[in-house]
Structures are given as C-alpha cells and as structure tokens.
Design a protein around this nucleic acid. Sequence first.
RNA 1: GCCGAAGUGGCGGAAUUGGUAGACGCGCUGGACUCAAAAUCCAGUGGGGCUCAAACCUCGUGCCGGUUCGAGUCCGGCCUUCGGUACCA
Length: 828
Amino acid sequence: MTTFFTNLLKTMKYPFQEIETKWQTFWEDKKVYKTDLTDLEKKIYCLVMFIYPSAAKMHIGHWYNYGPTDSWARFKKLRGYNVFEPIGYDAFGLPAENYAIKTGIHPKDSTLKNIEDIRVMVKHMGGMYDWDSELMTCVPEYYRWNQWLFLQLYKKGLAYRKNAPVNWCPSCQTVLAREQVLNDGSCERCGTTVVQKNLTQWFFKITDYAEELLDGLNKIDWPEKTKTMQLNWIGKSIGAEVDFSVSGTNDKIKIFTTRPDTLFGATYMVLAPEHPLIDKLTTSEFKQKVDEYKDSIKSMTEIDRTSTVKEKTGIFTGAYVINPVTNKNIPIWIADYVLMTYGTGAIMAVPGQDERDWEFAEKFNLPILRTVQPPDGFEGKAFTENGPAINSDFLNGLYVEDAKKKIIEWLEEKGIGKHTINYRLRDWLISRQRYWGTPIPIIHCNECGLVPVPEDQLPVELPYNVNFKPDGGSPLASNPEFVNTKCPKCGKEAKRDVDTMDTFVDSAWYYLRYLNPKYDKGMFDPELGKAWTPVDTYVGGAEHAVMHLLYARFIHKFLRDIGLVNSDEPFQKLIHQGTITNLGAKMSKSKGNVVDPNQFVNEYGSDVFRMYMMFMGPYELGGDWSDKGIVGVDRFVQRTYTLFNTHQNYCKKYPASVKYNLEELSEAEKTIYRKVNQTLDKVEVEVEHFRFNTAVAALMELINEFKSLDECRNDLKTYCLQRFAVMIAPLAPHLGEECWQLLGNKQSIYQTPVWFDVDKSALIEDRVNIAVQINGKLRATIEVANNSDKETTAKFVKSDERVIKYIQDKEIVKEIFVPNKIYNIVVK
RNA sequence: GCCGAAGUGGCGGAAUUGGUAGACGCGCUGGACUCAAAAUCCAGUGGGGCUCAAACCUCGUGCCGGUUCGAGUCCGGCCUUCGGUACCA
C-alpha cells in the first residue's frame, strides 16, 4: 500500500451520516432486533420508561435515558442473551389537550404527528428496539384494555365512587391524585396551587394492597432511596383505636394513637375542624368562637394549614370527654394540626410524650403530665423516647413496648379500644375532567344507577368531536352522541360517564402489552406475561418513585390475583438515571434553558453524542450540562475509525488465535495482550453495572496503548482489534458494526452476537510496583516480581538509598507488608 | 424540622476489602507539520519550595477532631449543595 493512500485514510473523517444510515437501514431491513419471545433461555426484558410525546422532539433527558440503557441491552445481547427491548408512547395526557386549547389543533392530530417525528429520532439514535412491539396508549386497541381493567377492578369492588374532598387544579381544570400534588401544594404538572373541592369521583382501592406493597419492597432490587420513599408514602403505623365517651352524653369519639401506653397522660383531646361531631358537642357558650375558627380554616390554603413553621392555633369547644383510664374529664379542643384525612380525625393529646401536643398545651395552658420517665438530666420538653412508665397505675415500670401490649389487652378486655394499623396511603383517585384520556366505561341510568359497560361492548371510543374549552366540566359532556346512550341493563335512555382516566392507568401495565401489542383476546397475552415478567431491568427517572412505580406494582398484583401473571412484582431491578440540568436548573421551556440534542447529533453523530453522555459521569448522578469535552469523545471515535480503516480485512488475512501463550510473546506484545484482556475484564464489569463512564475511559486507555500495535505480529493485531470492536459496539453501535465489518467479518455483530472470553492468565503482571513507605509516608516505589514475599521485597527495600536515608540511625519498630502493594517501615 | 445523596486540580470526573490521590477526557503550555491557520501528532500540566535542570522536600480529597503503620475511603462533631418529605397522632 502506498504511503499516499495510508495518509489519505488517516485524514479521512469518520463519515457518521453515511455509516449511521447504512446500519440503521440494515438493522431495520433485516429485522435484526426482532425478539423471539418463545425463546426463554437466557431471556432479558430490558425496559425504559416510554416516551411522553408532548413535543415533537427528543430532548437531552430522553437521550440520557435511552442511549445508555440501550448500550446496556446491546452489551447483554452481545453476551448471548435473548434481549427484549421495546419502545412506545405514553400518548394520552394534558399537554396535548392544553396545546389544543391554545392552537385549535386536535390532540389526536398533534400527538400522532409528534409520535411520527419522535419515532424518526429514536431510530436515528440507533436503539436496539423491537419495532414490532411498538405501542401507543391513545388508540382504542390499547385503551380498550384500560376499560377492561377498570371493569375487573369494579367487579372486585376495587374501583368505586365516593364523594370526598379532592385536589383540584384550577389551571388543569381537573382533579388530581394525591401523589400528583407536590409538597408545596402545587400541581405536579403545571405548578398551580391546588385547591380542595368536594366531588364524587372514581377511586382505585390501592389501600387494599398496602401491606403487600410494603412486603414486596423486600423482594426487589431497587435503589434504597426509592424503596424508602414508597415505604414512607404508604406510611404504615401500628397503634390502637380508643373510644372516649363525651361527658354527659352517649356520644363516643374514636381516636387513633401509636402510643396507647401514654393514655394516662392524655390531658385533653383535639378534633380536626371538619370533624362531624363538633357542631353537636360544642356548648352554646363557645359556639360562636368555634364557628369563627372553622371559617378561618376554610379560607386558608392547604399549604398554610399544614405548614409546620406556623404557630399552633385552636379553640375550646366547651365539651369534655372522659379519659377511660383515669376517669377524669378532659377538655375537647379543635385545632387545624389534626387532619380529618388521617386516622379518625381525632387525637388524644399527650403533651408529656408528644412535641406537637406539648407546644399546643404550653400555648393554651393545658395540663402536662409525664407518663414516661425521661433519663436523668433530660432537659427537653416532650420526651418521645423509650423509658419506664410513670404516673400510669398498672403500667408503671413497664417500658414502651410492654406497656403498649398491656394497655391494648386492657382496652380490648373492656371493649373500648383495639389494636389497629393505619396507613398514610390513600386510594388512587383516577377520574379526570379532561378529554385526552381513556373514557370511563360506566353508564349512569336513572333506573339502574351505575351500570358498567358490558365487556363485549368495549372499547368505549373516545369521540373526535368535542369542545375542549376549559370550563371545569368534562369536555366529553359536550358531545351528545357520546353522552347519550341506552342503559345496557334496562334499555332506557342513559348517560355515559364523561370523565376520563388518569394517564397513570395507561402506564401501569404497558410493559405487558409490549409483549404483543396486537393481541385482541385480552389486555395482553397471559402466556407471554407469565414468561416475561418481572421485567429484568427497568430504567427511568426518579420522579416516578411514588406515582407510576407504585401504581404499576399495585396493578401488577391485581393482575396476578385475577390469574393473568404469576409474578408478584413488575420490575425486578430498577435504575434511575440522573437528571441533566442546565445552569443548575432542570431544563424547561419556561426557564429558557433547554438544550437541543440535535445540534450535537448533527455535528458529531449519534454515536459520539450517546457516548459523550455516558462519559460525562456516573449514570445515576446526572449533572449539569456542558458540551465541553464532547470533542474528546469525537477524537476518540475518529482515532478508532482510522485504526480500523488502516487494518482492513485483518480477520481474513491474519486470523487470530483464541488465546496466546504469554511466554511466546515479545515484551511489547505481552504488554498489549495484557492490556486488551484487562480492558475486556474491566468493561464487562463496568457496563454490567451501568458505569459507562469508566468503561469508555478504559477503551480510551486501550486505544492509547495501541500506539505500539505495530510492534505486534499481525494475527495478534487481529486479536486486539476484534476485541476492541466488540467492546465499543454496545457503546457506539454504528461504529462498532462498521469496525467489525472493516475487519472483514461478513455477519453483522448484532445479527450474530460475539463476545470474547477474558484470558485470566493475562490479567496478572510479571512485575509490580510496590509503594515503600516510612511511617506511612511514601518515600519510594520499587519494582519487584509479582507475588514476591516479604523477605525478597525487604531486600530490595532496605538497599534502596531513598529508604536508607530514613531508616539509618533509627529503630525499626514494625514492618508492614501487603503483597504487590505496599512495604511500610515504622521507625522511631 | 426529618430522611437520603453528594462535596476530590482551571473543568467533567477516576481510585476492589483502608494501601502509590488525581485514571480517562476537556482546557492550558511548549514543540512538530504548514506560507499561514485549522485539523492531526508529540511532550508537559494539583499548589508551594529548592534548583540551570533533575533529584528531593512540603502541603493537599468541604471544615474540626479521632482510630490506624497507613484515611478520599472508617468513627464523632459541624458546614455547604442537591433530591425527597412536611404537624400522619
């Protein structure tokens, strides 16, 4: 070959556009990523949270979620697994509808258009998706099964309607589930402050599964943080319910407490301002003030009310209850720090052992009685820790746990209380007063009441023509053809439910539908559902920790209970990619800090962009966006391409051995051979654990080592290059395929997956550097044979000038030797 | 307030079980190539001291202590940032 030609190759830039198109077309034409779902040996279901197509573009977050996850899936594929990696669209939801209100473009039209655009971009990214399993939730073939699911839940009493105070977003013009209200009382979607309204709405009874949702957390491989969040959200507390009799009446007030052992210290009672008994028991003397207080609460927002920094307020009702253990009258107060939505809406106040009660008692001069002995020198106010009971008659001397047992026994014996478990978890409110979602399959009949739509009449199709102006009513009500129907039971005129379902219903089971999105005999093919769940690896944002991920677990357990799947959990291993911020803030249109990935994809190609995102830092940490450094990855790709271009057809011309004997290699060859195997070993471990940054770094190190590749015999070069191509293929799939082909391989690497075994004997070095320390300070490094013993090493150490300098005239106290690592001499 | 994660060069970040801090990359500096530039390649690059230079010394992983022959890593006490949560009885 002429020097001229070699130089030409060396200066030729990696033509990413041509090569990406070439391989994308090849993969698609040959259906390389079509998964055989009947092959269950070595199956892996790798799932990424599907796309919410609220805009026509893939943003940085999508790339960051999908690129690295796809690389992991590809890595598994090359290692011989039967990997199922699907993609789809979470296509219902508010943004499309809000967009329609603004522009007049119908949600269906804009959504389908967005999906088309996004599909092109996802393909451009070079994902290993099985396009035959692509799905979108906004088509009747999909949402029909949301309706079917609803009916199954309804049959079991797990879908029900109730009138309750619910969260209403004035901007989204719909109710929200509790999980969709952020901690500052704002709407998760639009940030508007949510208000409370009393409305009759549909709920899914997730609370029936509370205990199992807790138990299941022990069986899944999820980030501890996420499991803790679910644990806290479910909020199990063990305690007791106790009835207190109202003095001078037959009324009883039930309270819930986690500290029944402190019953003797209950010096007053507090009711939530909404408690139904208040009007009845308030004495006429206090009536006006109580009413005033209740009014003042009504005008407060939820945020103000539940603010912990706010000073406690409350008012006496004039009434008393009898403490069942002391038989003393204790006053009944009402205060907004007691919530009607938790427990019974009433508490016994034990200021001695509860900080909130102490604060309240101090402010309103209510009696405080300690019933748990604080340790000597305790200077705090309420004592909430463990200790022996005091001032508690028959409980005296018992520590908290024993005292609880004894008092509960006593209460149960007397029939005035019982052991109780309370959960913070509320039922899932699924009604939405919006258009772009799944219609609720219920008919309201004047004669028969609520009538479920018969299953054979599903789907209840979402009509195209509606008026989706936000006026607080459901847009579907504006379409008479939709609303007016016949009662399936009595045949008389009836009306359809005009609300739609929360879109979290769609996403609660989509991973099952992927297995065969065209299946028309049920929600999904139960055989496949049983074979392919739980999903092995699920990757998505941590913001779904208590919404989507909790709902999906609930629905999965329900589907198991009706026999459609046989696994207990939907997602075995969960990984959260970090968030990519820009200028320290989450990217959003309103902040104007959105970075468009296309500018980089167009300039460097998708392989470089993907790999750069992986190289930026630990996957689970995310970080602030910066394009500094993308050129480094680009250079690496260029060098890789040049390397393979200058070694074309090496596989054919100089076939490599499977393994080389180190003894027979020259020093230069040995070094490279070792480095190749060490890198292979490293890349395997790093990619397996989603540590892509260090995997890319290892490959960069290896290509640096290849500077001396020319000192190797040709078949050994092949050995090195083959392995390099295979290792880079998951991280830069188009480049990987190209390199593999340049080496002279006929088959696409993903068509016929290849991975090489590590030659373990090559991981060990002949000679190693030992750090020599004097009193723990590094004074020298010496090179010795691998696995040298202490005596041999000591000889080298003690004859080294740098060491002698420090140990002469000194007394050697101790010598610590760690083979192949350290030799530390302690002198006095 | 409570729970969790993080804090390492100019920057992004590496560092099995405590064992040579700063891998890899960016940037920067110098050099080669070029009429010149870009690109590419080569060399250097934590701070300070000493030196023509090297060798060498010294300080260094948010702060203060501790354990240890040895601490980025373990323990105690703080500070900052970012997530989660918010009177749940």
